[in-house]
Each structure stands twice: as structure tokens, then as C-alpha cells.
Design a protein around this nucleic acid. Sequence first.
DNA 1: GAAATCTCTGCAATCGATTGCATGAGTTTC
DNA 2: GAAACTCATGCAATCGATTGCAGAGATTTC
Lengths: 358, 358
Amino acid sequence: MSLVKKTPTIQDVARFANVSTATVSRALSSPERVSEQTRARISEAVRVTGYTPNQSARSLRQKTARTILVALPDIGNPFFSVILDAVEREAAARGYGVLVANRFSGGDSGVRMRDYFMSNRVDGLLLFDGSVDLEQLMMLTGEPTPFPLIVVCEEIPNAPFHTVKTDNSYAAEQATRHLIELGHRRIGHIRGPDGNVLTGEREAGFRRAMQAAGLEARPEWMLPGAFDMDSGVVAAQHFVRLEARPTAIFAANDESAIGFISGLRQHGLDCPGDVSVVGFDDLALAAHVWPPLTTMRQPRAALGRIAAGALIDVIEGERHSRVPMHMVLSSELIVRGSTARPPALVAPLATPPALAAR
Amino acid sequence: MSLVKKTPTIQDVARFANVSTATVSRALSSPERVSEQTRARISEAVRVTGYTPNQSARSLRQKTARTILVALPDIGNPFFSVILDAVEREAAARGYGVLVANRFSGGDSGVRMRDYFMSNRVDGLLLFDGSVDLEQLMMLTGEPTPFPLIVVCEEIPNAPFHTVKTDNSYAAEQATRHLIELGHRRIGHIRGPDGNVLTGEREAGFRRAMQAAGLEARPEWMLPGAFDMDSGVVAAQHFVRLEARPTAIFAANDESAIGFISGLRQHGLDCPGDVSVVGFDDLALAAHVWPPLTTMRQPRAALGRIAAGALIDVIEGERHSRVPMHMVLSSELIVRGSTARPPALVAPLATPPALAAR
DNA sequence: GAAATCTCTGCAATCGATTGCATGAGTTTC
DNA sequence: GAAACTCATGCAATCGATTGCAGAGATTTC
């Protein structure tokens, strides 16, 4: 009769089934504690009334939100969105909702994070942001981490957090070694954004491979970048202005590699004819750009799945280890068309003077 | 002294400031109703105790979650992830959290949606999934939509929902007209997945443009697709086997266009030399693939922002119009390198027989 | 056959914030 | 100077589900 029919509560179900709310609650959460008859009556009552438990009330009582917070630097970036996809699926499979916080780095990120937790909206945090201020975070979390947290894609030495990451530094080393094995000696690097942990690890791997081969990582060949296509285009502009150019570039991620190749083309240079390029991540499009990109495949889906699973384990107390866990997943070199032998080796007798080392 | 220090509640603040919890609550939500002195004492108490309101308790009392649910077919798809980015920002700016539900289409989607709402976890829904069963949804929602809902990217004629969309059909017409204006007469189309509303609208626009120009949309030139790169590659395989090939293709989205171009190349065909290709969406990478893709730019960020804003308006009762609103944003043709005049027109006298129409 | 145990169910407190109503002090009005 | 009003605050009910405790009846144990 009323204009707005209220959503049914556990009271309505109890009344309909002629039992107390306590019994209804038990019938739904631990059916074995309720007699078969009663259980059947309650099921029927639930069906008829169309009852769904009120999550707010449940959260309030149980101090549990069945929700995790995923903090990302940029959802629009396909690298993260694929991971988010996997996270969402794992969480959904275990009955958790996923709340996303985008552009989490920046001044108030620590405060916002703290608010999310203290407000009991989420039970745990998956932190993907390499630029977030972890010092600040640690201060907020206090000594023994008071809330379940897993840092993904980053590793802060000695930080009391669980982490899941890929073997960035080793993978960068592999990528660089691939170029060296092709015969390249003059190799440059497009860096990631300053202050990002990944930037450091990938650069370190690059330097290690160079050093191991007795090659020099020239400062002017370390081009600035920012993990996006535009910065790759800009890097290409720097590149063509170099007096002595490298014959190969290891880019810190696929997007900057693709931007770089596109920029090369604008200046009449060919990849891999003039310059070999290796990327990092293996985005879906890496196989479809021209030339198809040689890159290190990061196990992104696995990363998301494992991180989400581990976080929920922590939340549910199945991993109560005081000592932080560090999980490392390994990457894989995918050789495609963007890398080849250096020009000098292809036609050693015809090396044009312009390309010869000064 | 205790091992685990409890999170402070409004009681703690009240005790510290020597007032009732009612006053604390009012000081925080409507400060003008509390005297300046008291307000200062309360602020101090909040600061000292480190109090943050418990969202579950607030939700329970106010029947409001300050959270919206975003249902997407595929977060991993950059098309959606950019929109999600905009949605998240708009929502955050207005104090709402964003819960994501991925792969929402499929058997239980209606039920899952209903559960989300009835459980009071979310206040409204942004539905992006063209494949979700809207009939089922309508049944669940009942006559006057009982929960705030905005359907994005889709339009169901006569459905009692607010919608935000781009002018798909008109944009497809424009894209096709661009090919016609370049001189193409034999034009094919890579379709989207069956059952998706967008597929139908884009195909309709294509047919309208063809008809208006007096051209035939041949059945064997309507290639199946699925909005992803792989289906574009497959479409290219179909394409090369055609007896009489089109000189231009309008692909239903950028990903299938890029996959198609990549597939062409594997068969030794050049774009735009042999075939011009127009995409749809203007993904970030469209400008960076080779050749740079001519495409219809969809105002994705605006779409997300406007949809989220409208949804929150509805939630907060600022738009109580019974009659559903339909907002349409317009797309823009971005001409790049993947379209050119047809081969026959470039060198009309030298048309190789193989390329001539049979 | 009394005691102990087990099974099923209900009572009522509890989670933490919000809000309608009431109250008392201070202020304005005529 | 009494009535009417305003302002700041407190009291206590309320939102809806969960759960410790207790009791009634049935069953097992010795």
C-alpha cells in the first residue's frame, strides 16, 4: 500500500518463519547449527521476502567490510588496468569487493589512506603506487602494521610490509643482455620517472648488464622518460640530437619504447634498421605495433591474483607471520621485431662514417 | 597498556571534550549549530584522539553508503579504464568511493547487481556493459527505478533509465563518409561482437553513409569482430581470402582496426597503400601505431565525468525527474595516416588486374 | 534413573553514529 | 515583567545484523 516498500530486514524474515532473528542469522551463516525443518522454513521466508543482509549492519557488528582498497597511480594506464582486472576477479571469487583509489600519490595520500582504514570501509590495502611516500605511510601505520597491507611492484628495503613484485632488476639485466648478445656495444636507456622505485631497479639492471660486458653506460645516453608514450617521443628528439648515437635502446617500459620508435620514425630513422629497441611489460599492444616490440613480459595477471589472494589471507588471519613476506615473480624475454643486429654488423664493410664511433 | 589500542569512537571524543556524542556529531556535520567554544574543544579532541567517523555506522543510520558501483565488461580494456579514471576522479571530488565490478555480463549479473543494492553497499550504479541483460535488470528494478542507475554507452529505446552516450551511429556515418570522400567505393566493415548495442549502432551508421552515397554494403564485406586485436587479425585473414576486396575498411573500434592492420602486414598488404582503415575510439595508442590511425575520437574522459556527476545528482535527489534523461556527447574525426585515396585513384592508368573489380 | 551431555532456539546486549524531541538559559517583544 | 523566541546542548531511540549466555527438551552415559 505504501508508495515505497521498504527493503526487507532480518526481522521480516524472522516474523515470516516464526523464529527469532538470531535463528535466521545462524541459518544463513552456519546452517549446521539449525535444524533441518527450521532451515527450510527460513529459506522459504528468505525467498518470499527477497531478503538480502544489510552489509552496513554486518560490517558495524563484525568490524569487517569485506572490501579491499586498491591504490593505483593511474587506472587509465593499461599496465595497471590489467592487474586491476586480475585483482577484481580474485577478490570477487573470495567474496570481497574492490574499492579503487586513483592518483594516490601526492600530498594527502597518507591521510586519505588512513581515513579509509579508520573509517572501517576497507579491510586491507593493495598499494601499487611507487611514488607514494612510504615513510609517511609507516608513520601512520605505527609499529606492528595495524592494517593489512601489501605493496605491489615495489620493494622498500627493510620496510615491514609484505611485498609482491617482479624481478625488475634481473629482468632489466636480461633485456640488456639480449641487446649485447645481438652485437650491440653502444646501448642507451630511457629511464622511468624520477623518484619511482621501478626506475631505479630497471636502471640498475641495465648498468649491471653493461658492466658485466665491459661496456660503458654513457651519461648522455641515459635519456629521461616518464613511463608514457609522449616521453618516449621526447626521448627520440633528444636521441637524434646526440653527437654519437647508440645503436640500441633499452626503454624502461613499453609505452616509452613505442613512443620512442614513433619519434624515431618522425626523424627518418628506422627500428630495428637504425636502432634496436627493447621494452618492458609486454602490454597487449606490444605485439601489434610496428615493428612488433621485443620486451620483457611481466606476469601481470599473476601479479594481481597473487597479491589479492595474499592480502585476503592476511585479512582473514591465515598468514599471521610477523615477518614480512617478499614474493618475487619472474619475467620472460619475448623477442619480436624491434631488435636486430646493429647496422655495423649487418654490413661491416660498408659502415657509413656517420654511424661509426667517434 | 593493552596490546591492541582500539580505534577511537565518537564516544571517546565526547568524553575528552566533555560534551555529548550528539554535540560532537553536530560539530562535525553542521558546525554552525554548535557554539564556537565548544567547536574548538571538539576539534582539539578530534585531533588528539585521532578520530575518524566509522563509515559502517554512518551508513547504517543514514541508509547511504557514499559509494557507487561501476559495472564494466572489461577493466583491462583501455577504453574503459580511461573512463573509469574519470569516474573515479569525479566521484572522489564529490566524496564518493568507487566499487568496481568487472565482467559483469553473464548469467548472474542481474542477481549480483540486485545484491549489491539490497545490501546497502552502494547508492547507485553506473552500467557500462552493453551485453548485460537489461530486460532482466528492469524486472529486478521494478516499475519506478528503485535505485539510481545510469546506463553509459548504450541506449535502449524506451527503457526507463537515464543514459549518457556518444553519438555512435552518427559518428560511424562520419567515419564512413570520410572514406567515401577520399574516393573509396568498395568499403567493408569490421563489426563488434554480436548482441552488443554498440555493434548495431556503428553498423547502422556505416550502412546509412553507404546508402546515402549510393554504395552497396556487401554481405561478404561485413567481417565479424569482437572489439579486440585478435579479432582484427582474424578479420584480416578473412579479408585476404576475399575474391573481390574492398579498398577501405571501417572498423568498429581501434583495437580491431590495429589488429586488422597488423594482420594485413602479415599477408604482405600495406595500409594505407592497399587498404585504408578507419577506427573508432581514439585510444592513446592510436596516434602511436604505424601507420597512425585515423579514427573517431570519443570523449571518454567527459563521458566518465558526466556520467558520474549525473549519477551522484540522482542519488542526492538533485535530479528527481521521473522522465529519463538522455545525454549525447559528440565524437570527432581525427585524420591520421591510415587512410588515403584508393589505389586505383592514385595511379588510375596502372591499376593491376588483380586489384580491379571482377 | 539420575547425571551429564548435546541440540536447538530465544533473549538481549552490542557495534558507532545520527537525529527527533526536550530542556534550560539567555534574548527580544509589547 | 510576562510571553514568545532563539540558541546550544543533552537524552535516548534508532538503523539491522551478530553473538554470548542461558534454558528447554532430547539423548546418552554409568
